[in-house]
Design a protein around this nucleic acid. Sequence first.
DNA 1: TTTAATTACTGACTCGTAGTCATTTACTAC
DNA 2: GTAGTAAATGACTACGAGTCAGTAATTAAA
Lengths: 224, 224
Amino acid sequence: MGITERKEREKEHRKEEILDAAQKLFFEKGLTTATMDEIAEAAELSKGTLYLYYKSKEDMYLAVMMRGMEVLYKIYEPIVSSNDTSVQKLAKFGDTYKNFFHSHRSFFRMFHFLQAPQFHKQVSEEMRQACSVESRKMWDLMIGLLRRGMEEGAFRSDLNPVEVAIILWSSATALLLRVDSEGDTWKERMNIDLEHALEISNKLLFESILTDRVRAEFAGLNRG
Amino acid sequence: MGITERKEREKEHRKEEILDAAQKLFFEKGLTTATMDEIAEAAELSKGTLYLYYKSKEDMYLAVMMRGMEVLYKIYEPIVSSNDTSVQKLAKFGDTYKNFFHSHRSFFRMFHFLQAPQFHKQVSEEMRQACSVESRKMWDLMIGLLRRGMEEGAFRSDLNPVEVAIILWSSATALLLRVDSEGDTWKERMNIDLEHALEISNKLLFESILTDRVRAEFAGLNRG
DNA sequence: TTTAATTACTGACTCGTAGTCATTTACTAC
DNA sequence: GTAGTAAATGACTACGAGTCAGTAATTAAA
């Protein structure tokens, strides 16, 4: 009989329902301001029940964040699988990240959590592991793209593809975080458009990793 | 009579003593783990007294962080005032930031707080203002350096010096944060030295903002 | 010197919230 | 119908930020 299986499904379903409620509140209020009581109420369950499904508030937060990582992965994956050239793919990577920032701002903000070690106290080892696996998928996409581009002679092969991936990803993330938190300030006080700064940053880094041959083509395209 | 002045001095002194205790505990335990009771005990005062000098725990945290910003400023200021060329100065800026990261790791970590908007709830307007002024001093140093370099023809003048400052600063900060929180992981799992990645990132960005003339000299120097 | 007034300090208290656990309710099997 | 199991509950504990009525110390006035 399939009772065990049905129960298993229902349990998974309940877990997702709880996460829906958590997502709603984390999006609205952020990690610290949203309370477990509020999430419980939104999920139409008691607080105790939440802890049958997630070990801590932080674990729950990361579970929501992983949804965001999956969203981003599903956007990126087809870019890598497409028939574009490596150069085109990398350009799309940059645009896509910016689009994701705009269309999924709340998820993007959550990514920031990973880099704030002071709040990881309550994160379970399992969740840490799961996040690590999920983020590894993203890195592999990008590193693979760069590695193939180097083999094809599009990108400079004297650079380490992993290092380049980290450089591109980190600088884009840092600038988008700044857009998010300080964008208006820079605009008002210095008349600076941080998104334009991001474009310049991407352009500078992008061009500096192209091989001379491809850079010449690229410049030709930009002029024509 | 100087009683009012003496009292004023004593009050300032007490405020610094409290900050010494706070700094010790924030360095050891971070913002969330350090408690006001612990800080009070370390300062040999009651918790209530702390609130006569600082409006909230977050305010206190930012006051400590500002000490770090002053330390960094005092390291940077002489670089800008020196007789080096703009190119040399900019190179020193990069090295200096990395040195600061190593010698004042706890301060560096605190800087990260500014970019985590979810924890700014309890920060008073005065403190926000004070931080803004202090960080503005740093930015002005860097922006001024870039602007002069552009006027002298060392850096490309088709770029906006403010944008370049933001780009260089953000990417360096992002990579150092990663060194701090994930450095060991990348080393173990991928055999990647994130500090080397930072050097590459700096080199790529650095060279791409030089004018063609200076880049040629620079390349000559690097070879010679 | 005594007393009043001002300032500095105290620590028990309130309040909010994460996480727990003994108990209750709902469901399944025999 | 009853025993056994799984799911859910919510009152409770622990803990920490921030408060405030009261106390002590210092200065000014009488």
